[in-house]
Simulated scan of single mutants.
Amino acid sequence: MRRLMAAAVAAATVFAYAGANAQAVDQKKFNVVGTWNFLTNWKELEVPFWEKELPAASGDKLSGNIKSITELNLKGTEVLRLLKSGVFDFAAALPIYVDDGAAIVEASDIAGVARTFKMSREIIDAWMPEMQKVMRERHGAMILGTFTWPEQNFYCKGDIKSVEDLKGKKVRVQGASQADLVKGFGGSAVTIPFGEVVPALEKGVVDCGITGTMPAYKAKWHEVTDTLFRLPVGFTASIWVVNLKAWEKLSPATQDLVKKEMAKLTEKSWKAVAAESDEGAACTTGTGKCTAGPPGKLKLVTPSESDTKARDKVLNEVVLPAWAERCGADCAKKWTDTIGSKYGLAAKAK
């Protein structure tokens, strides 16, 4: 009887705590800007999180009015500005679109450094303190989670057999370090918004473009190119950020709940996107199973050992020195000590 009484008291205590904790969670609908509405991240991760998973975890107290960058017709560089001004409470942001403090944030995904999803995540996690500092001091924001995109490769018109064939090519890039990599290969870098790449390829404004495997398929790059040169140049690890003023108005219980759910979203995101990276390549080339739709017919070219050595040479002689110059000596030393030393790399301006 005593055990039953003790169990009853314990259960009552737990339920009372849970009820009090639930009551401490704010009733709030956040304004959120996400990524592109035709890609996997948006459909399978972002929308379900803000419209179903967060509401369920909070007893329908928290949710998000989420809009894609596509439907809002925003440039990537506008996202953090609108977050800072309070237009949005939360935003999905890509390091390549950060203006203020760009080189510091860029360090989380320097082109040619990460070779696997595991390595990409290790790098962004290790560099998180530096990124948090930039977000807080320059953007009035805080990072609450990370996510990624599929392996970044070259999609080109014509026949590309090796890095040698990239010489003289106009290549669409996503950021400064990708531009340095392309220049190191003898090509010229062109910056074009993701949604404008297909017509640019059609009109000959560019000969090639760099993007993730499944995004390339979803955006129909395989309809305007001929070759997938699958030389990994990065993964575009990205971040979920919250406006600090909006965050500080939330109760501690609400903050704890959002942090917990964002951590779950982070884990789910990395696993889901890693799984679709190979399928994206299969979808654009027709060389394997494609559940996303009818496969394309691009020629799949796997890089040779000499290609990967050429990439590593350009990384060490061009990309890392150029980034070190942009970020400064102290920043470059911190990156080398924190990240580079683990992978046998060093960043130092020439």
Rank of each mutant, 00 (worst) to 15 (best):
G286Y: 00
F38P: 01
A176H: 05
A91S: 12
K157F: 07
A111G: 12
I160G: 04
F88V: 00
T284Q: 00
T227N: 03
M1G: 08
V241S: 13
A22P: 09
L345G: 09
Q23M: 08
I210G: 13
L54A: 14
S63Q: 04
V301K: 01
V14F: 04
N37P: 01
A346N: 15
T308C: 08
G288L: 00
D159R: 08
E122K: 13
W50I: 04
L244V: 01
M1E: 07
G280C: 10
L80E: 09
P129R: 07
T77E: 15
M142Q: 09
C290F: 03
T285G: 04
L228E: 02
F154A: 05
V173P: 10
D60Q: 14
V98F: 14
V32A: 07
L54H: 05
V113E: 14
K167P: 07
G293V: 06
K161A: 06
N243H: 12
G112N: 13
Q27L: 02
G101V: 09
I123L: 11
T148K: 05
M214Q: 03
M128E: 15
I143N: 15
N316R: 15
P150K: 00
W240I: 02
K28S: 01
G64R: 02
A310L: 06
K167C: 05
L45Q: 07
T291C: 06
R311G: 02
G344M: 11
W247S: 04
A114H: 13
G145M: 08
G34Q: 04
D60F: 05
R121M: 05
V224C: 01
L39Y: 03
F185I: 00
I69S: 06
E106L: 13
R2W: 12
L298W: 05
S251Q: 09
N65F: 12
G64A: 08
G168A: 08
G234P: 11
D99A: 14
L83G: 04
G296S: 04
D337P: 09
A263P: 03
N31P: 00
V273T: 13
L300H: 02
G288H: 01
K342M: 14
G64E: 06
G328F: 15
K309H: 11
N316Y: 05
L345K: 09
V9E: 02
G186S: 04
N65W: 05
